[in-house]
Design a protein around this nucleic acid. Structure first.
Length: 640
RNA sequence: GCCCAUAUAGCUCAGUCGGUAGAGCACUUCCUUGGUAAGGAAGAGGUCAUCGGUUCGAUUCCGAUUAUGGGCUCCA
């Protein structure tokens, strides 16, 4: 498979990196060095812990290698000779394993540049002097073969471009991206805070952030009403047995907060001198009754006998909910349903808690407690296709309204070779084709990915690409045949028989936290007026007009607009600057002229000075803009 | 969880070769009353992340912990 010219360039850079590295650290044992979407890396095993100073040294050496204008020479060899070469250069540790990966019918090739030779399928640039614009960026740890059971190697990341200008542009772009990082903007704009004493991965929404979130919730809620959803509220915890029934406990226990054990039960196991292992075994155990029920409903042995304990040895407790489905299911199951009632669509901004590994937490985008804009639809099999369309249109409305047009759609299907999936084949075929057909209606490219389905059904994910090219899974729609069985859900059909409903799980935002994090970066903090925590900043030119300004402030608030008054005794320029830095969409400059004419001088953050208009005109304009949820115009380049 | 790095005022960062710290912005007060991105002055603000060790003495050196950042692994 030939590489693109850019990949070739970057791949050659990894070889030059390895060349330079071996000159400085001859002991390094090389693994692999492929190109990536944004650059290249090389993994290697080395006693010495690399520092940023080493990085600079290696980069200087790389420049030398480039200047030496070494040709990249391809050499195809038989397998036994390949082993010999690898032995000769002392790179047996990882390269022999990599050699074994090459299928017997494939050619084995090495590439040599100068004194460096590497097992490599290619391809490469002709001469190292082609590498004119590269930069080493960072040192990282990476497991050999991406498996955390293997040794962790050192990885050097770098990037390369055909020209110095393109490299400089890319580096500038990285700098720009840092400026819109939601963690920085979240602090600057007072949107959210994470406090060590509260706990990592737990978001404290500050007043400004709360406005953003509330507006998004209002927006979704409006759409949900239009689509016939019912709003529900459920608690943040549920009994362990609920999650044993759903199958989430203990199956996903490593990503859940520990259960809360009832005081009395705890006292009992303490009195019995139970070991920790025994306590946990009792938590995970189920009663014979529950086991029989679940196995009978599932039609196979999903809970094995070793998990069963006598009732008096079961340890009861509660769990912070890791998902909302069981609660919604219990609402559905609390009443008998006729086919005439379906679909039942239960929606909740439901907060869930998941024990994410500490190293993977990140600002708002990866957290331990988050609120899903969740809903569960209970419908007949015939209704699945239509309901899927409704869910997808909702996601599409969300993305369109917010101007997030750069996304792809992933249809997750079952892996035909695997038997981990529940439900019968006919249902799966129906659901998968419904997902596929639904995805087609979106009018955007989508990929079908076998093996990406959840074990309970196929799904459609929306993966949004952000300003610096990172991808985020936000909206998701999933079909579920599993939970209705495990909870023995039913409705009465036209034939007066009980039938099993199908569930659809869907969340157009995914989670409020992640979505807001991505949204902050998407807008760079420059929110459209309907989302801006502060929509209007009143800037009096002098104290003489303070009364008029205060009256105006009251009027704006009465009109349900979010406005504040800058009463600092700074000069106008300073106040304008402050409003700009606070990213307020509209700044109203008020002097004598305006006070006398009951008017305002409008400065739009997006469009600059818009001149004087009556207060009435301005209010009507902004209210219309907010009501229509318009996107802001492209901001003119900042001069600050 | 793993590898590496980092932690000094609300923010961005200096600094102390070991003798308890400084700037700019922000904040408070005063002067200034102005026309579209920084007017001036004064003041206040820090157990130098936490705990322990070495030392006459630790913010500085060492260790552990916690948190953060960049990766890896993971994400029902």
């Amino acid at each position: 498979m030939p590489m693109t010219p850019l990949e070739e360039l970057r791949h050659s850079c990894s070889h030059v990196l390895a060349t330079a590295l071996l000159r400085i650290f001859p002991d390094a044992k090389l693994d692999i060095g492929p190109p990536t979407d944004t650059g290249f890396y090389y993994d290697f095993d080395l006693e010495h812990k690399l520092t940023t100073e080493d990085l600079a040294r290696i980069e200087v050496e790389m420049k030398k290698v480039a200047d030496e204008n070494q040709p990249f020479i391809r050499k195809e060899v038989p397998r036994d000779e390949a082993v010999e070469i690898i032995r000769k250069i002392g790179q047996e540790r990882y390269k022999l394993g990599r050699l074994e990966d090459i299928p017997a019918d494939e050619k084995i090739s090495f590439y040599q540049n100068g004194e460096f030779i590497d097992l490599c399928a290619g391809t490469h640039v002709r001469y190292s002097s082609k590498l004119k614009a590269f930069k080493l960026l960072s040192i990282a740890g990476a497991y050999h073969r991406g498996d955390e059971k293997n040794k962790q190697l050192q990885r050097i990341y770098g990037t390369a471009f055909p020209s110095k200008e393109e490299l400089a542009n890319y580096l500038t772009q990285l700098e720009q991206a840092k400026l819109r990082d939601h963690r920085k903007l979240g602090r600057d704009l007072k949107l959210f805070h994470i406090d060590e004493d509260v706990g990592q991965g737990l978001i404290l929404w500050m007043p400004n952030g709360a406005v953003l979130r509330q507006e998004l919730q209002n927006f979704i809620s409006e759409e949900l009403r239009k689509q016939g959803y019912s709003q529900v509220f459920t608690p943040h915890i549920g009994k362990l047995e609920l999650y044993k029934t759903s199958g989430h406990f203990p199956y996903y226990k490593e990503s859940q907060f520990s259960p809360m054990v009832e005081t009395e039960s705890l006292a009992k196991v303490i009195a019995e001198n139970c070991s920790c292992a025994e306590v946990y075994a009792r938590l995970e155990a189920v009663s014979a009754n529950l086991r029989d029920q679940i196995n009978a409903r599932s039609g196979r042995e999903v809970i094995t006998p070793d998990r069963v304990r006598p009732d008096d040895q079961l340890l009861d407790g509660f769990m912070l909910k890791p998902m909302n489905c069981p609660h919604h299911i219990k609402i559905f199951a609390s009443q008998p349903h006729s086919y005439r009632d379906l679909p039942v669509r239960l929606a909740e901004f439901g907060t869930v808690y998941r024990w994410e590994q500490s190293g993977e937490l990140n600002g708002m985008t990866r957290v331990r407690g988050f609120t899903q804009d969740d809903a569960h639809l209970f419908c007949t099999e015939e209704q699945v296709a239509a309901e899927l369309l409704g869910c997808l249109s909702l996601v599409k409305i969300v993305l369109t309204t917010l101007g997030m047009q750069d996304y792809r759609v992933r249809v997750g299907l079952r892996d035909p070779d695997s038997n981990k999936y529940t439900g019968d084949t006919a249902n799966w075929d129906k659901a998968e084709s419904a997902c596929r057909e639904a995805a087609k209606t979106l009018g955007v490219p989508f990929t079908e990915e076998p093996g990406e389905a959840a074990f309970y059904g196929p799904k459609i994910d929306f993966v949004v690409r952000d300003v610096i090219g990172r991808e985020w899974q936000l909206g998701t729609v999933q079909v579920d045949y599993n939970l209705p069985i495990r909870f023995d859900l039913s409705y009465i059909g036209a034939d007066n028989q009980a039938h099993r409903p199908v569930m659809i799980h869907r969340a157009p935002f995914g989670s409020m936290e992640r979505f807001c994090g991505v949204l902050i970066e998407h807008f760079g903090g420059d929110f459209p007026a309907w989302l801006a925590p502060e929509q209007i900043r009143l800037v009096p030119i002098s104290d003489k007009v303070i009364d008029y300004t205060r009256t105006l402030l009251g009027r704006l608030k009465a009109d349900n607009l979010r406005a504040t008054l800058d009463e600092h005794s700074d000069k106008l320029g300073a106040k304008i600057r402050r409003a700009e830095l606070d990213k307020v969409p509209y700044t109203l400059v008020i002097g004598q002229k305006e006070a006398e004419a009951n008017s305002v001088s409008v400065r739009s953050r997006a469009r600059g000075d818009e001149g004087v208009m009556t207060a009435d005109t301005f209010v009507a304009k902004v209210k219309a803009e907010v009501a229509s949820r318009s996107l802001p115009d492209k901001k003119k380049p900042a001069n600050a």
